[in-house]
Nucleic acid binder design. Structure first.
Ligand SMILES: [Mn+2]
Ligand SMILES: [Mn+2]
Ligand SMILES: [Zn+2]
Ligand SMILES: [Zn+2]
Lengths: 136, 136
DNA sequence: TATCAATTTATAGCGATTACAAACTTGGAA
DNA sequence: TTCCAAGTTTGTAATCGCTATAAATTGATA
């Protein structure tokens, strides 16, 4: 049983029921959900939950380093609980996002043309295995 | 002097004054502008220009392969005139986007875990040379 | 130059996100 | 345990980037 209260405290985030539930959801469902997807899932058991709270909480968590915000799709931000580094593959047919565990040693650069690199975001696009198989 | 009319014709795009001006702007200013930035720049000399035209034109150009649409930032699409392949670095301090000419041979994979890879999008984030220098 | 399809414009509308202020929780002091 | 101030949540309105629509305009062709 993971102690989500402890995780929040360790990141200097004051506790609230909403924050615990949102963190729990992102830890349990690694589906790169949008703010709205999280809201729709949690409104079941928390009928008074406000969408503003979801947005505020995701912003706080991202700033404090618990989550990563992804801009894989145009026009919407998706979130994921920080785990081991990985890259993303988006299928242009079914729109699913796959985690790819492959790591690229060639991207380990800390410095490029004088710029200090803090984050690498690698987004691949193409046709996923499942869609290729069902093509014929 | 570049013949923008010829470029449009070669891509099967019927001519219009607006299309020529937008293409000219994107060719001359390689700053990865948003639709609104292009609109604000062109409204000076074309007071009747509609923002809808800018959006429509950028969509047409992207579909015809003259431009590339980038989702580097959250919540807004940026455009660039197609040139040689390169990757992008976003400074988290000044928000500028830099072109990085480095190519990664390690990303040349055509297939990953059964998925067919068609595009690679590599976005780096960090602190740019200019901001580092001015830090002290 | 006349025709007419394609393009542009102005306007309204939409989905994702943010701003704001009142009501409510939370954590700590008394 | 009770009380309080600070921080959080909520509901609403507003904003931002973008799209839909239909009337007005343009431009390719004859
Ligand atoms: Mn992931
Ligand atoms: Mn570029
Ligand atoms: Zn697929
Ligand atoms: Zn900078």
């Amino acid at each position: 049983m993971i102690d989500f209260k402890k995780i929040l405290k360790e990141h200097g985030i004051p506790l609230s029921l909403q924050r615990i539930k949102i963190l729990e959801y992102l830890h349990n469902f690694k589906t790169h959900p949008t703010a709205d997807m999280i809201y729709q899932a949690l409104i079941e058991e928390m009928p008074m939950l406000s969408k503003t709270t979801v947005y505020n909480t995701l912003k706080t968590f991202t700033e404090k380093g618990i989550l990563t915000a992804l801009s894989i799709f145009e026009n919407e931000v998706r979130y994921e609980y920080n785990t081991v580094p990985h890259i993303h593959f988006k299928c242009v047919k079914c729109n699913k996002i796959y985690d790819i565990s492959k790591t690229y040693d060639c991207l380990k650069n800390e410095e490029l043309e004088g710029h200090k690199v803090l984050e690498h975001h690698i987004n691949l696009k193409g046709i996923c295995k499942s869609c290729r198989d069902s093509e014929e």
